[in-house]
Design a protein around this nucleic acid. Structure first.
Length: 472
RNA sequence: GCUCGUAUAGUGUAGUGGCCCAUCAUGAAGGCCUCUCGAGCCUUCGACCCGGGUUCAAAUCCCGGUACGAGCACCA
């Protein structure tokens, strides 16, 4: 009889292409215009994981060359590395700040002009858009090197060109099939002060130029990024050809939509926080890493989540429950059970039952048990009243609180209860809403930050002023 | 409009011409255990976008269609 071979399933991330025995150098380059969000975590996890598994390097790069549309936020330069380490489990091997590397970019811009593959264009954006669609060369394109150098100096001169009056372009080919690649802009004039380097520079590189030059200077071997940047790869490859460099291997992932997070942008969040719509960057409703961390989402859960999604170019929609199922595995073994009674309803017990005792805190660990002591009654949830129930680990009672049995006598529902306890509130982030549920929490001595499992409700983290729902 | 990309169960994912009447996870349904609507264990359900072609053989290669997504910024 023929034996059927067992199908093998690839685990984890696919191999990096064309590694050729090298140690990979990878990078993750956020804009420090705000703290890191869920969306950023993919790039961090994937790049970080490869660096770790293959004994390579992870570069954390601040792409802070826009002072106008997405101005950098100073605090982000400090918070991002902290969050990166939290998420990846190790600090980045190198940190590069683009605004501190401007000299390099300027030198390369000049090399580009001198090499005849870059030119200063003084056409308006609208005019150039027409040149681009009609595949015609703009009048500036054929200026000679000295003329371009002259105009380049005028771009850098406060007395010269003003913002919008001139840009530096990479000379590619105006008849290229892909309109995005036709003589793309490499640098523009910005006069707003940069929060870190002030007004030291006037001409700032655009992403495609800055990133391309920096990747080469840092020796990046593999770029892993969203497929929305496919045309960036093509643009940058054209630039690399001009410089005679070899472009790194590039891998793309598709768009991920998490329904529960809707459409948050860093700038919108910044605005809403300023207006008081949200309490801060760690408001539980926000998709920031600080909010997720506060909500008890573990970094290893985030890592498992992104690694499972892998590197397909498919655009996908994933429910948050997928992340939660990973998180449950991470937190359940260490989450002591605790009772929290919502809409507390008092019921006095009549009959014989053990008035003191202890109940286990977890099914399979050596966690210390919880002790209880009943005076004359317990709290149960309003919804559980009015029917015969079994008080979990205690006794069966009828609707009036008469004890019917100590042992479980039938299939009636098992209900949690609290003897004594303290009023507390459970905060639940539900989309754009923050729901607060009042209730009685069983006495405990767990410190702030402990993740507990509220019986029959779900996981919650203990905060200074109550409980914050993790997930169910 | 031009350009680029992707299409496997409800949701994700494995699979690069025969190991595939298709993997794993999640989900749903049922069961066991546990005195939670939790965890763990077991069972079940459920998919190769459509149409051609190449081939002895296609989820896998080619062509066309369709659907969805992205780029065409003096943002990243």
């Amino acid at each position: 009889m023929l034996e059927r071979k067992v199908q093998t399933r690839r685990e984890g991330l696919p191999d990096l292409p064309n590694l050729d025995g090298r140690k990979p150098v990878l990078r993750f380059a956020p804009n420090p215009n705000g703290p890191l969000s869920f969306g950023h975590s993919r790039g961090l996890v994937i790049n970080g994981q490869y660096a770790k598994e293959l004994d390579g390097e992870l570069i954390l790069r601040f792409d802070d060359t826009d002072t106008t549309v997405k101005p950098p936020m100073l605090e982000a330069y400090d918070s991002i590395p902290v969050q990166q380490e939290w998420l990846c489990g190790f600090p980045a091997h190198r940190i590069v700040v683009a605004s501190e590397r401007m000299q390099e970019y300027h030198e390369h811009a000049e090399l580009m002009i001198q090499g005849g593959f870059g030119y200063v264009c003084t056409c308006s954006a609208e005019d150039f858009r027409e040149f681009r669609v009609s595949m015609t060369e703009c009048p500036c394109r054929n200026n000679d090197v000295s003329e371009n150098l002259e105009k380049w100096n005028l771009m850098n001169d406060p007395e010269g060109f003003q913002p919008g009056e001139a840009v530096l372009r990479v000379k590619t080919d105006m008849t290229l099939k892909n309109p995005a690649l036709r003589d793309w802009p490499a640098a523009r004039i910005q006069t707003n002060a940069h929060p870190r380097v002030g007004n030291k520079w006037r001409v700032w590189p655009l992403l495609d130029f800055q990133s391309a030059v920096e990747d080469h200077l840092q020796g990046v071997t593999h770029i892993i990024r969203g497929k929305d940047l496919m045309d960036s790869t093509r643009k940058q490859t054209l630039l690399y050809e001009h410089f005679g460099w070899k472009y790194p291997e590039t891998i793309y992932w598709g768009r991920v939509k998490v329904h529960e997070f809707g459409a948050f942008s860093t700038s919108q969040m910044k605005k809403d926080i300023a207006q008081g719509t949200f309490d801060g960057w760690d408001d539980p409703r926000l998709p920031t890493l600080s909010a997720l961390s506060r909500r008890g989402i573990k970094p290893e859960s985030l890592r498992a989540f992104w690694i499972e999604l892998g590197l397909t170019q498919k655009d996908i929609a994933v429910p948050l429950s997928t992340l939660y199922s990973h998180n449950t595995k991470a937190i359940d073994p260490n989450a002591p059970r605790l009772a929290f009674v919502r809409n507390a309803f008092p019921i006095s017990l009549k009959g014989n039952y053990p008035k003191t005792g202890s109940i286990s805190s977890h099914s399979d660990t050596e966690m210390p048990p919880r002790n209880y002591s009943i005076d004359e009654g317990v709290w149960i949830e309003q919804e559980d009243s009015g029917k015969p129930i079994r008080l979990k680990d205690l006794c069966d009672i009828d609707t009036e609180g008469n004890v019917e049995s100590i042992d479980r006598s039938d299939k009636r529902s098992v209900v949690h209860w609290v003897a004594g306890g303290k009023p507390s509130k459970l905060t639940i982030a539900d989309g754009q809403d923050l729901i607060t549920v009042e209730g009685i929490l069983e006495d405990h001595e767990y410190p702030v930050g402990t993740i507990v499992q509220l019986e029959r409700i779900g996981y919650a983290i203990i905060e200074e002023n109550g409980l914050l729902m993790v997930h169910d």
